[in-house]
Amino acid sequence: MSEPLEARNFFPALQRNVTPTPSGSTVVSYTSDLGDGKPILTLIHGYPQSAFIWRHITPTLLGKVSLFIPELPGYGISTPSPPSKRSVGAALLAALSTLFSGPRHVILSGHDRGARICHRLAVDAASAPPNLKIIGAFLLDIVPTKVQWDRFSDPAIARGYFHWPLLANVELAVGMLKAYGGGRWARGAFRLAGKNEEGLRRLEDGVEVYVGLFDKEEVIRGSCEDYEAGAGVDVEEQVADQREGRKIGVPTVVMFSEAGLGARMDVAREWADWVQEGVPYEAVPVGEGYGHYLPEEAHDIVSEKMISFLKEIEGVELN
């Protein structure tokens, strides 16, 4: 009998951890620690995926920077927590703080829903556990949640992201996805992949992992609750942030699919108002037909930029 997905170590070269947190969630993560004083890079996955999305990128980073790669609560491997980005982010940082000793610098990186958690944590940087200092943010293929909802007045955007309002209606969505098949639904989400043939090949082995996780009702429900928070409290917090002038205050890179998100929105302009004036910020389009799943489809391009960003952040020295 094959090992259950929730028990697998997707990264044999890393330590697999199971860490209880004050949120009530038990966070599964994969870590590599280069020792006290060395910076930690988070790699936080999105929907409808798992930490396996980082399988191509991790080998390029191993030995260069300490790594914290969590499984999102509610997505089938870590147990659920309150689903707002602030609550999930706090659970992840609590696990990180437990696993890594000493005062540490943290660079936040995430894709999709994971990038939204990183955005929240970057704005809330002053509230991080006392042994952690957030010094950078690397966000993959998103615009701020409030901006995404505002752009739904464009029919093409509303059609392309129809799953947002659907999944936010939890009870309706859970029933519909169960009837349709959670794994079948997850497979269909990869319509957001690009047209680059090599990129699509890089996705293939991952899709089967994600489909296997979404065959479980608890994953359907947990992920829908994520989207429900994204239609409620997450937006309310961002509205308050902008009204009160709370923005990202650490160096930030946003990478995005030129053929996907970049074809629908001016990503560079959208983010400019969410980063404090004078803070280094760069928006980087990824071309060549790569789509939404950049950590897999375009892992070589992402890795190169990620390593460059780490080197540019003051005080970060890579081995």
Rank of each mutant, 00 (worst) to 15 (best):
residue 38 K to P: 02
residue 50 S to T: 15
residue 33 D to K: 12
residue 78 S to V: 02
residue 36 D to N: 15
residue 62 L to H: 13
residue 76 G to M: 09
residue 56 H to F: 01
residue 52 F to M: 13
residue 80 P to S: 06
residue 72 L to Y: 01
residue 45 H to R: 04
residue 73 P to L: 06
residue 41 L to K: 08
residue 74 G to Q: 11
residue 47 Y to V: 14
residue 55 R to S: 07
residue 56 H to S: 07
residue 52 F to G: 11
residue 69 I to M: 05
residue 37 G to N: 13
residue 63 G to R: 04
residue 46 G to S: 09
residue 42 T to E: 02
residue 62 L to I: 06
residue 65 V to F: 03
residue 43 L to D: 03
residue 64 K to P: 08
residue 72 L to T: 13
residue 35 G to N: 14
residue 44 I to K: 11
residue 64 K to C: 09
residue 48 P to Q: 11
residue 40 I to C: 09
residue 55 R to P: 00
residue 78 S to Y: 03
residue 76 G to N: 12
residue 72 L to H: 10
residue 51 A to K: 06
residue 50 S to I: 08
residue 44 I to P: 10
residue 60 T to H: 13
residue 76 G to C: 08
residue 36 D to F: 09
residue 60 T to E: 13
residue 67 L to N: 01
residue 35 G to D: 15
residue 39 P to L: 08
residue 35 G to S: 14
residue 68 F to I: 00
residue 46 G to E: 10
residue 70 P to H: 04
residue 77 I to L: 05
residue 42 T to F: 04
residue 61 L to E: 05
residue 53 I to F: 04
residue 46 G to C: 12
residue 43 L to M: 12
residue 46 G to P: 10
residue 80 P to R: 07
residue 55 R to W: 01
residue 41 L to R: 09
residue 68 F to K: 05
residue 73 P to I: 02
residue 62 L to P: 00
residue 52 F to R: 14
residue 70 P to W: 00
residue 69 I to H: 02
residue 57 I to C: 12
residue 35 G to A: 13
residue 49 Q to I: 00
residue 62 L to M: 03
residue 40 I to Y: 05
residue 55 R to K: 12
residue 77 I to A: 09
residue 64 K to D: 02
residue 62 L to K: 10
residue 52 F to L: 09
residue 51 A to R: 07
residue 72 L to G: 01
residue 44 I to G: 11
residue 75 Y to S: 14
residue 36 D to C: 09
residue 65 V to M: 01
residue 64 K to A: 06
residue 72 L to E: 00
residue 62 L to Q: 13
residue 59 P to W: 07
residue 64 K to E: 11
residue 41 L to Q: 06
residue 37 G to Q: 05
residue 75 Y to A: 14
